[in-house]
Design a binder for these strands. Sequence first.
DNA 1: AGCACGCCGACT
DNA 2: GTCGGCGTGCTC
Length: 799
Amino acid sequence: MNYASVLVDVSVRQTDRAFDYAIPNRWEDAVQPGMRVIVPFGPRKVQGIVLAVKDHTSVSKVKEIGEVLDVIPVLTEELLLLGTYLSEETLCFLITAYQAMLPTAIKAVYKKFVRLHSKESIDYLPEELQAIFTHLERREWSELEELVSKITTVQRAIKEGLLEVDYEVKNKANKKVERVATLLEVFDHEANSISSPQQRDIIEFLRLNGQTSIKELKERLGITESPIKTLQKNKVINVHSIEVYRDPYVNKQINRTSPLPLVDEQKNAYEKIATSISNNEHKVHLLHGVTGSGKTEVYLQTIQNVLNLNKEAIVLVPEIALTPQIVERFKGRFGNDVAVLHSGLSIGEKYDEWRKIQRKEVKVVVGARSAIFAPFENLGLIIIDEEHETTYKQDEHPRYHARDVAIWRGNYHSCSVVLGSATPTLESYARAQKGVYELETMEKRVNQDALPTVEVVDMREELHRGNRSMFSTALHEKIEDRLQKKEQIILFLNRRGYSSFVMCRDCGFVIQCPHCEVSLTYHKNTHRLKCHYCGYEEHMPKVCPSCQSDYIRFFGTGTQKVEEAIYQQFPEARVIRMDNDTTSRKGSHEKMLKQFGNGEADILLGTQMIAKGLDFPKVTLVGVLAADSSLHLPDFRASERTFSLLTQVSGRAGRHDLPGEVVVQTYTPEHYSIELAKDQNYLDFYEQEMKIRRNFHYPPYYYLVLISISHQDLMKVVKVSEQIAIYLREHLSNKSIILGPVSSPIPKIKDKFRYQCVIKYKYEPALHAVLTKIQQFYQEETDKGQLQITIDFQPTMFM
DNA sequence: AGCACGCCGACT
DNA sequence: GTCGGCGTGCTC
C-alpha cells in the first residue's frame, strides 16, 4: 500500500475528486482511509482526507504526502460511505459533505508566509523590503500586503529568489493541554530529607492526591512555580503535559435520577421499540405523544436498554430546545456517559465533546442537527425529538435533513430510529399510516393532568369595542389574576413577519432596505433601522423620505414594544424578555431561564425560543399575542407551523398540579389550524391539511425541489430562470409539475435579484442527472461568482 | 480556491 | 521594450 487517494480541502467542482499521492515509507502502515493529511497541491499545501490506500497508481507524477495529521481516522468507514450518499443526494461536493461531519476545530486554516532566502539576500532587496525583513525574517503574506506600498515588489523579489514562500496548515483549535506534576516513586519516602517547607508540602500533597495540575498545586498550597521547578530540576517530581477536556458542565452538580414508572401508553411504546432493538431491526418508530405525555422518559429508558446491550445512542434535539433542563435530564440518568453538542459551546468545547465520542469514552450523544454525524461505530438507537422542527434541515450545503441521515445510519447499523413529536410532520405521519413507519401514540398526559383550556380571542372584535392595546380584555384580566396569585405567565410573540417596520401615516411609505427589498426593522435602543437579512443599518428619519411629512412612525410589535406595554399596564410585574437581542451573549439564555425558574420574575416574554421543552411548574397562563402572524407567510407549510407552534406553546401551561390556561389572540379565529390547535386535535388537523396538500400537489403527495437563481442583473436572472424552466419541462416526465420561474418571496437580497423554480414530482428517476446537467451548464458563470444557482431538495423555506 | 501562465494595452 | 491588467486552465 504505497499510494493514497486523497480528497483535497478545496470545494470547487474541478477538485471534487480524489488525487493520488505516494505514501513515504515511514508512514506506510500508518495511513488509513478517513485520516487527515497535508499534501502539496500545486504550489501550496492543503489539508485532505484519505479516501483509500492502494498499491498502484495510474498517475505518473505523484507527489508525496507531506504530513499525517491523525493516528485514528476522523471519519469511520461508515461516515466515508455516508458522505458519498450525501453528496449524491444533495448535489454537493464530497469534501463539503465530510466537512459537515467534522467539528470546526479540525478544519484547516491556511497561512502564507514570505521569508528571506538566506541571510545575505537582504542586501539585494529593495530598501522598503530591507526595512521589513531586518527585524523579522519571516512575515505573513496578509501582513506584508499592508506593510508594503506595492505587493508586486514582493512578488518580484520572490521571482528573483531573494524571498521564499512557504505555507502553513493549522487547525482552528487545538487540544487543550495542562501541565501536571507527578511524584517520582524513588522519592516517595524521602520527603523528610528535604528541608524546604514548601517543597515538602508539594511532595506531601502529591503523595496524597497523586498526579495534580500545576495550576491546582499553586492554588491549593499558595506557592509560586519556583519550588516546583526546583523539585523538577532535582528529579524529585516529574512535570509533563496531558490532554484535558474543556468541560462546560464541570462545575455543575447534577443529581442522578432513576427510571420513573411508565404509564400504560409509555410502556406500550417502550416495548414496541424494545422489540425492534432486541431483534436488531432497522425500523422507524414515529412516537406521537401530546405535550406532557412523557416522551423523554420513554427515550431515557430506551437508551438504557441500548446501553445494556453495549451499544450507543444518538439523541437529536432542536437547538432552541437544547436547554440546560433537557441536558440535565440526560446527564442525570447517564452521568459521564453523555456528550453534549450544541452551538452554545466554543469551538474547543465542541471538539472536546466530539473527541469523547471518537475515543469511545461516552455512549450517548445529545445534540443539535450535526450530532447525527457522531462517529459511533456500534450504534443501537437514534432518537429525533420534536421531529417536525425545521432546524433539522440544514439551509446551506450540504442541504441534508437529519431525519434522512438518521434513517441511513439506522439502516447501516441495523438499528431503530425513533421520531418523536406532538405534531409530527405530515410526511412522517403519512408514512406511519402507510405502514412505512411504526406508529406509537401517547394521548394522555402522564400525571393525568387535563390539557390546558385554550381560549381563542378574536382581536377584530376587541378593536371594534375600542380596545387598541395589544392585550385583549380576557388576557389582561387573566394576567392581573396571576400576578395577584403570584403564579407565573409566559407571553409568546411569534416575531417573524411581525417586526416593527416604519411607515409614513401621511403617504403610506414604508422604509425598506435598499439592498434586499424587505422592510427595515426599528430598534429602539439604538434608534436605528436595521435589515434582518443583510445587516444594513440607517438612522430613523425625522421626516418621510417620500413626502417629507413628519408623521413617520413605527408599526408592528416587537418584544421590546410588548415589554413596554406590560410595564405600562402592569407596573408591578417583573418581566424577563428573551429574544435575539437579549440572549446573544453566551450563557445568558440559560441564566434567564434559571431566573424565571427561581421565581425571580412573573412574566417570561419571548419569541420561538421559549416555546420548546421548558417546564416551569408555576406557569399557569400562556398568552399567544398574535397567533396568525405565522399564518400569512408565503409558504405552504404556514398552517402546519402555526398549528404546531400553538400546540407546543399551549403545552407549556399547567404541567403540574396547578391547572393551566392558554389565551390565543388572533385576527382569524375561524382558521382550522387555530381552531384545531385549541383542542390539540392533531388527527383532524392532519386530515384537513392532507386534503389541501393533495389538491395543491404538495408534500407528502409530491416531493419538491427548489431551484433558486440570483444575479445582480435582473434581466440575467429572468433569462437564466426561464432557460432552466424550459429545460426542466423538456427533460422531466410530464407527470412532474414545474412551477415558475417566479420572483422569490424576498425578491432581492444584498443587491442580487432572486428568482425561483419549483419542481413537484412523485417519481423522477432522471431528476439528479437533469439537475446536475443544469449545474454543469451554468458552471462557468457560477464559478465566477456573479450568477448563483442553488438546488434544494425537500426545502423547508421558500424565502 | 489559489496560483501560474500567457496574451494584450500603457508606460519608462 | 517592460509592466501589469485579467482571462484560462491546472492542481496527484
